[in-house]
Computed example of a mutant assay.
Amino acid sequence: MTINNKTICIVDYKLGNLFSVKQALENIGLHIIISSNPEEIKNSDALVLPGVGSFKDAMNNLDQLGLIDPIKSAINEGKPFLGICLGLQLLFSSSEEFGECTGLDIIKGKVKKFPNQTIDEIVYKVPQIAWNQIYEGKSLTWKKTPLGSTENAEYMYFVHSYYVQPEENVGLTYTTYGSCEYVSSILKENIFACQFHPEKSGEKGLEIYKRWAELNNIK
């Protein structure tokens, strides 16, 4: 597969399995680096922020590694940005994990924990570790987005205890877990971020990465 000359940086802030994301993006022909170097992040053509783990630990690591300003600068400059799982949540103003923790505050809103739920004798465990469906909302269409070739109600793979609650009109997909309907991906200008893991969601997930790259002219 032909690799282009644009560099996509996976931001390494010492949380989560970055290599499965790297492998998936390389499989669609992207030139990928993994870095926690602010200069490399600054000089990249696009950023990917994955992650699984604690919101508070992630923000502490980003701060200690000096990565908050480079991430914000890249987004403000209009560079393509892809957030995955915790990388979606970190974009928000705050999380209620461990009381309340301040996030990057790029998207106004909060990160909230799933409630304990038992409905019709079905226990909805926390964290949600499951294939679940994504639905198109009423305000943002999937056309000309990374989900342009994804069918409504397609299944994607989720692993999370917390979900985002935007105060802005950025919800691209919605998902239901028990009685809780939540935003499972967002789109705002050059930012696309999802709670589910495309790299763990088979060919449908890889197609989302491929369309993200094509729409942003980095493939």
Rank of each mutant, 00 (worst) to 15 (best):
Q64V: 13
A130C: 14
I3G: 05
A213K: 02
Y13K: 07
K204A: 05
Q195A: 10
L206Q: 09
T7D: 03
F192W: 07
G87S: 07
F192A: 02
S95G: 04
E151H: 14
N76M: 15
N37W: 01
E181A: 09
F158P: 02
L25T: 01
K210C: 06
D105L: 02
E167M: 02
G53T: 03
K125F: 11
D45I: 10
N217L: 14
G205P: 02
N132C: 06
D105R: 04
T102F: 11
L67H: 05
Q64A: 13
K14A: 12
K112H: 11
G178R: 08
I3Q: 13
Q165F: 04
I10A: 07
W131R: 01
T2H: 14
N217G: 12
K6V: 05
V111K: 01
L47Y: 02
P80V: 02
F81W: 08
L187M: 09
E96K: 12
A58E: 09
W212I: 04
K22V: 03
F192N: 00
P70M: 06
Y162D: 08
S54R: 11
G137E: 11
N4F: 14
K125C: 08
S185G: 06
C101E: 15
L91I: 02
G202N: 13
L187H: 08
A46V: 06
S184A: 05
S185A: 10
Y135R: 13
Q128T: 12
F55D: 12
G205W: 06
P38G: 00
S73A: 12
S139A: 12
I218C: 09
N5R: 14
A213E: 03
V48E: 08
K79R: 11
E199S: 07
C101W: 13
K125W: 13
V21W: 07
G202C: 10
F196G: 00
K138P: 03
C194R: 03
Y13P: 11
T141E: 15
I218V: 09
G87W: 05
I41L: 02
Q23W: 08
V159K: 00
L206M: 13
M1Y: 14
M59V: 11
Y157P: 05
I10W: 05
Y163W: 03
I68V: 12
L147V: 05
V170G: 04
F192G: 00
